[in-house]
């Protein structure tokens, strides 16, 4: 009797799931094509506009100017609310101006890890970990946009919804939500102009000129190199679909918990979400280190001490994911 029951269950599942599966696969494919369009557009287009970033209860309006010229990507982001802050980018060099702290941070991004280069690998596996669907159309920044939604297939990642300009492929709005459908983070253009700005001076930071820099600023520049031999550490609890994208050693200045030292940094991504693992030696007694989990908006963080090293795992993934990953970090031979 038991076998008959399961046979009927199997038959019913086969009968009903097959057409549904076909429809889902088609939807996945179509959604994937839209995402591929977005990937190309972000790299090729020049545009400027204003957009709103919402993170929890906070929101900020920012202006962006992005110029793509002869394969070079130039960009300036300017926060319009609250204290003035700017980010400029020339290809892989990112400069972050924090005038309130009188601080400029220079970060060099590795070219092979940059956004479009990651896509062929990243997008290919997205369907395994997200249910992708093409949705309806909705207006964003005055443009009738196409909605594409990605729901996670497991608990290790957040969901996403994208609004895409059907003409240019540019991403007009992006939401990230948790397992309960609660909005974690949102970016949306409120005004957008496709094409180069009237003056490329718009790409320069207003804090970069002598006239705007009164007194002295601190400058923190990350110096890093790719590493191949990272056999000292084991990651026993990797997350499904997250593949290692980069491994590097960074020179960091002294802070409260570590000496000025080389910090190891690994980047993992499933093509959509990203997770960083930082390991650096401890300077203080482990009892005094502030370990545990915390959230910074949609970014989950887990800190723990392993073999007299501080391990920090962070990413735009659920808290359970960073906890799981951090728990699997071990010093080899310990």
């Amino acid at each position: 009797m038991k076998y008959v029951f399961f046979t009927w269950i199997g038959l019913a599942a086969g009968l009903f799931s097959h057409p549904l599966w076909g429809q889902t696969a088609l939807g996945q494919q179509e959604a994937m094509q839209w995402l591929q369009r977005v990937a190309g557009a972000a790299q090729k287009l020049s545009y400027s506009g204003t957009f709103v970033y919402r993170n929890g209860s906070q929101s900020e309006t920012s202006r962006v100017v992005h110029v793509s010229s002869n394969g070079n990507q130039m960009e300036k982001l300017e926060v319009l609310d609250g204290s003035p802050r700017e980010v400029t980018r020339y290809n892989d060099e990112v400069k972050c101006y924090l005038p309130e702290s009188r601080l400029m941070i220079v970060e060099q991004r590795s070219a092979r890890r940059s956004f479009p280069a990651l896509l062929p690998v990243g997008l290919a596996g997205l369907g395994d970990h997200y249910l992708m669907r093409k949705g309806s159309r909705a207006r964003v920044a005055g443009i009738e946009s196409q909605i594409v939604r990605l729901d996670p297939r497991d608990a290790w990642r957040f969901g996403h919804q994208f609004w895409i300009d059907p003409v240019t492929g540019l991403l007009l709005k992006a939401d990230m939500f948790d397992a309960h459908g609660e909005l974690l983070e949102s970016l949306a253009f409120t005004e957008l102009h496709i094409g180069e700005p009237a003056s490329l001076e718009a790409l320069k930071s207003s804090f970069a000129g002598n006239a705007n820099v009164q007194g002295s600023w601190q400058v923190r520049q990350a110096k890093m190199r790719d590493i191949r031999d990272d056999a000292q550490w084991l990651f026993r609890a990797e997350l499904p679909g997250f593949r290692r994208q980069a491994a590097m050693a960074r020179d960091i200045p002294q802070n409260a918990e570590t000496e000025a030292h080389e910090m190891l940094h690994w980047v993992y991504s499933d093509g959509l979400a990203a997770l960083s693992v930082f390991i650096s030696p401890l300077r203080v007694k482990r009892e005094t280190v502030d370990v545990g989990a915390q959230s910074l908006g949609a970014i989950s963080v887990m800190k723990r001490v392993v073999d007299d090293h501080l391990v920090v795992v962070m990413g735009d993934v659920p808290p359970a994911a960073v906890k799981h990953f951090a728990a699997g970090v071990e010093a080899r031979g310990k």
């Binding site: 995402l35 977005v38 990937a39 557009a41 972000a42 790299q43 957009f51 962006v64 992005h66 990507q73 960009e75 982001l77 980018r89 990112v94 972050c96 941070i105 970060e107 991004r109 590795s110 890890r113 940059s114 956004f115 280069a117 990651l118 896509l119 990243g122 997008l123 996403h160 540019l170 991403l171 992006a174 990230m176 970016l187 990350a222 994208q245 980069a246 590097m248 960074r250 940094h265 980047v267 991504s269 093509g271 959509l272 979400a273 990203a274 997770l275 960083s276 930082f278 970014i299 962070m314 990413g315 735009d316």
Partner: peptide, 15 residues
């Protein structure tokens, strides 16, 4: 900063 700069994600391009 290190995480955001190095982690490539599929969201509004690099912005």
């Amino acid at each position: 900063l290190a995480h955001h700069t190095q982690a490539s994600t599929f969201r509004l391009g690099d912005n």
